[in-house]
């Protein structure tokens, strides 16, 4: 129990200290641009607990979820293809490096023209940025599959889908998940940016709207919502990762101990 308390103290200690400091610094503040903690909390509740949750927060989360899911599926699928075939890798490497170097943000105006101002455009923007860490990590993970494990599959004639399911995917899973972790934050950034351009709903749109209308505490509370979504994503990721990579963490622990 004391260990649990200590861990909780470590987890919450710094955020609490920062909030305290913020409270102390804004006690007699009249600064229009920086609200006090109390003000922010009331604004947060007033602003987001209501119709805005359904109109802005949920659609944003929906786009983010769709974009990330698509990025994971496409990134892993193409990563496995490219990682498995040397020729394909050699053929695609320069092209991939080039596309990867283009900041996905500049695609927003282009995609607005091509796809129009709709949810699909925003999802495509998220995918176009979030896919890269997953794709490249999957390629590396597949390439680095242990030679003895491959030989084992070959001698026992484990092929095709069986090989994919029981060797390729699990062997690359630590790398794939490392890529997914990076993609989560990229996806969140691109979700906001895609909503700042031509949009009539969503968090990015609402935050910019608040800022333009000098609703400063509301703007801050929107930023808080984004932070909480990011936190939620990383908590979900940790739970999923622990489950999928239980074997990996166990193996690493054993290797470290010896």
């Amino acid at each position: 129990m004391s260990a649990f308390l200590r861990n909780t103290a470590f987890l919450l200690g710094l955020p609490l200290l920062l909030v305290l400091w913020w409270w102390w610094a804004t006690i007699d503040s009249t600064n229009f641009f920086v609200p006090t903690p109390g003000e922010l909390v009331t604004t947060f509740v007033d602003t987001w607990f209501g119709p805005r949750f359904w109109q802005d927060v949920l659609p944003s989360i929906g786009r983010l979820a769709a974009g990330l899911a698509l990025a994971i599926v496409l990134g892993v699928a193409f990563g496995i293809l490219i990682g498995s075939f040397k020729r394909l890798r050699q053929l695609l490497e320069p092209l991939l490096e080039f596309i990867r170097a283009v900041p996905p943000v500049v695609l927003v105006p282009l995609l607005m023209l091509l796809i129009g101002i709709n949810d699909l455009m925003k999802v495509v923007v998220i995918v176009s940025g979030a896919i890269w860490p997953i794709l490249l990590n999957t390629v590396e993970g597949v390439r680095a599959t242990d030679e003895v494990q491959r030989d084992t599959c070959a001698t026992y004639r484990i092929r095709g889908l069986n090989r994919l399911r029981y060797l390729t995917l699990p062997a690359a899973s630590p790398q794939i998940l490392a890529g997914v972790r990076q993609s989560l934050s990229i996806g969140l950034i691109l979700m906001v940016i895609s909503e700042m351009f031509g949009s009539s709903s969503g968090l990015g749109f609402t935050i910019v709207w608040f800022q333009r209308n000098f609703a400063i505490p509301e703007m801050w509370s929107g930023i808080l919502v984004l932070g909480l979504i990011g936190l939620g994503l990383s908590v979900i990721f940790r739970v999923v990762e622990r489950r999928i990579l239980r074997w990996y963490h166990g193996l690493r622990e054993v290797q470290r101990a010896s």
Binding site: D146, E147, V148, Q149, D151, T152, A154, T155, Y156, R157, Y166, L167, P170, A171, S173, W247, Y248, L251
Partner: peptide
């Protein structure tokens, strides 16, 4: 011409021949 159906191999590197995820 390829790994025969009726043959099995035990490798030296047992740690790398067994799948740690199973």
């Amino acid at each position: 011409t390829g790994p025969p159906k009726t043959m099995a191999v035990v490798f030296q590197e047992y740690g790398r021949s067994l799948f740690p995820w199973m």
